[in-house]
Design a protein around this nucleic acid. Structure first.
Lengths: 186, 186
DNA sequence: GAAGTCATGTAATTGGTTACATGATTGA
DNA sequence: TCAATCATGTAACCAATTACATGACTTC
């Protein structure tokens, strides 16, 4: 009941918008929550079972076709979701291996670190383009209450990614300066 | 040997700078890596044992006083660290419960979401002040190669946190507009 | 008919945290 | 003397991922 598996709330939150299969839940996570949350099939399916046993969701098995299992939220589930939403967020956590390597950069040296930064920059640039596309689409499509909140999370992504790119430029400038060497000129 | 416990590299990276006790390693993590990495005693002490058994670190037990155990890195450890540093970063991951709640904000409503955003803003504002202090100190103290990389990670934090605060302002503006209600005026 | 996606699930593992237990040293 | 911090460690737990297994439907 009151366990703290966040995947439960992710599922309830998504089902609160529309009935979905486990597979579709996974897709939603990978598309819309991707940059601030994740979840695997290995956690989704067992969580759906548990939520159903608990009466928080209901399942409907399709008789024809592939026999997919569509879940929808119950009143009990909605209450649980609402209770969780009202509680303060417990953990906002960033875990960037790139920064960890950068922190220990003295052992690797300037050039090696630049490789990491350029790779990071590329990845962010691509993801930013996607998020900017989302922004444009969502801004056209305003109206539904839900879209407003979705758009805010996307804008969060856009602004932090822009800051990342600004930082990448700065970091490269610092490291590409050749005036005080690290022994590389022979 | 080739297991992927990141805590091993955190420890090796820190010991590469200076010999430390397990307790001091924990302090370093909580002070300097805090905003992009974490680690508990429950992972540090066992990892130190394993690294020692592996010949990657050496321990020296203080005979007098508290009998603390000071670890230092070996050549093998340094090699392992260097190998890891050269590999591309595998995972840069952000997991913000605040954004998750925001995403499902339609169920909670405007006021509830504003509470989360204000709390988030406060936390970030405080952390930003700390990071800005670090920046000032590190900029004075330039010279050591290590400080340059440390400073870059701090600057990353400063710029992303500033972007967060900018976004908070924008988000509050969107949600505080009272013109299109959510049923709150009776 | 092959590749790709849709679709559901399980078992083993993992990397880590939390909570607990213990005790020495330091400083008000 | 009392609280805070220094200091080391372990056992229980935990949420989640990875890898695997299976098979139906769709599209070229």
């Amino acid at each position: 009941m009151a366990n703290e598996k966040k995947i439960n709330y992710v599922i309830l939150g998504l089902l609160n918008h529309e009935p979905l299969t486990g597979y579709e839940i996974k897709k939603r996570i990978d598309r819309s929550l991707k940059f601030f949350w994740s979840g695997s099939f290995g956690s989704i399916y067992p969580a759906l079972d548990a939520l159903e046993a608990d009466g928080c969701v209901e399942k409907e098995e399709e008789k024809s076709g592939r026999g997919k299992i569509v879940y929808s939220i119950t009143e009990k589930g909605r209450t649980l979701l609402r209770e969780w939403l009202m509680k303060p967020a417990e953990k906002d956590e960033l875990r960037y291996e790139t920064l960890l390597k950068l922190f220990f950069g003295a052992e690797l040296g300037r050039e090696g670190i630049l490789v990491h930064i350029r790779k990071f920059e590329d990845k962010i640039r691509k993801e930013l383009m996607v998020l900017e596309e989302y922004t444009a689409n969502l801004e056209k499509l305003q109206g539904e209450e839900e879209h407003k909140y979705y758009l805010l999370t996307v804008k969060f992504g856009v602004e932090t990614y822009r800051a990342y790119l600004g930082w990448c430029g700065e970091a490269k400038a610092v490291l590409e300066k050749k005036d005080h060497g690290d022994g590389s000129c022979g």
